[in-house]
């Protein structure tokens, strides 16, 4: 009985934590954008505006729900779930920290550990695009449709680079298990894959921006051209669900980058660190990449769509292939 309870407790804790973090990200987005524009940002609701996400949530609940005329009602309702669901599923294998004792049982601080966890994250988070495509298609609006089309083209192009960048890390550590990848980076700062695979790091980082539809690759939304892109016709909690999905996907991708290239929960030069130090380290590393998402968004202008495709297919894919090839060669030779 206890293992089941432990599992439930872990799920609740991690899921709740990530959702809270996603809510915090909406505030952070507004705060960081304000700072970069010499403003202060939301500061009226609660101290420093900390209750702003709550206020936004309440507002979303009370908004009127609209289903446009001619929209496909089934898919229109299904799309937000499909957008948010996969991102939340991908949380399951993220290693937040190492050994921990819950209800007297030793366990690890991640909902599940299994040998193919890295592959699982990529496979599941890649499904998030269906929500965007179907949301765009079922809205019966040209802007939404174009947003959905762009999202699908973009996702397919950049997933290749993402997986190939991941592959070179996997080749380095010889396992698809995120825990083993973390273990392989234990020790000092120089053990991080960031130094051993700089090109893969760069490609992975760029691909995560495209995968999560963030600036400068946010062609699925693209306000100046497409009004709001795939979520033009959405309102109320459906709209909110799209955004929760987007922020959770960002958290997943940031924590994946931290895990694959910065050693995840591993504390440099302190192998036997207690779990809360590991968790703090992990959150620090992930937090940096989350901040990077916001920082880049309010710094760079949007690409043009053909530039995006050119970058994906003509630059990133060949580089990623080359990187895998060279890594494999070096590994097999030495």
């Amino acid at each position: 009985m206890t293992p089941v309870l432990v599992m439930l407790l872990k799920t609740l804790l991690i899921f709740g934590g990530v959702i809270t973090l996603a809510a915090g990200m909406t505030l952070a987005e507004r705060k960081v954008s304000a700072w970069i524009q010499w403003r202060i940002g939301p500061n009226r609701v609660g101290p420093w505006g900390t209750l702003q996400p709550l206020a936004d949530g309440v507002k979303f609940v009370f908004k009127e729900e609209l289903i446009p005329d001619g929209a496909n009602p089934l898919l229109f309702r299904l799309a937000p779930m499909l957008a948010a669901g996969p991102a939340m599923m991908a949380i399951a294998v993220i290693p937040f920290a190492g050994e921990i004792t819950l209800l007297g049982q030793p366990t690890t601080l991640s909902i599940a550990d299994f040998p193919l966890s890295a592959l699982y994250v990529v496979a599941v988070s890649g499904l998030g695009v269906y929500g965007v495509i179907l949301g765009g298609w079922s809205s019966n609006s040209k802007y939404s449709l174009l947003g959905g089309l762009r999202a699908s083209a973009q996702m397919v192009s950049y997933e290749l680079a993402l997986i190939l960048a991941l592959l070179s890390v996997v080749v380095m550590s010889g396992s698809l298990d995120l825990r083993k990848i973390v273990e392989a980076q234990a020790g000092g700062l120089l053990q991080w894959n960031l130094w051993r695979q700089p090109l893969a790091f760069l490609l992975f980082l760029l691909a995560t921006f495209a995968e999560t539809n963030r600036h400068p690759f946010d062609f699925a939304e693209c306000e100046p051209e497409l009004v709001g892109g795939f979520h033009t016709e959405y309102s109320s909690m459906k709209f909110a669900l799209f955004f929760i999905g987007e922020y959770v996907a960002m958290i997943v991708m940031a924590s994946m980058t931290a895990t694959l290239f910065l050693g995840g929960p591993e504390v440099p030069y302190w192998p036997a660190a207690p779990w809360f130090v590991q968790l703090a380290t992990f959150l620090l590393k992930t937090g940096f990449f989350l901040f990077l998402f916001l920082w880049v968004r309010w710094t760079l202008p949007r690409f043009r769509f053909d530039q995006l495709m050119g970058l994906g297919w003509k630059v990133m894919l060949p580089l990623a292939l080359l990187n895998v090839f060279v890594t494999g060669l070096v590994i097999s030779l030495f």
Binding site: I36, W295, T299
Partner: peptide, 19 residues
């Protein structure tokens, strides 16, 4: 150039706010 742009916006974050 991206790094240069990022460094500019990072410096702006710590500037005095005009709000």
């Amino acid at each position: 150039e991206v790094v240069r742009a990022l460094s500019i916006t990072l410096r702006v974050i710590f500037k005095k706010k005009v709000t």
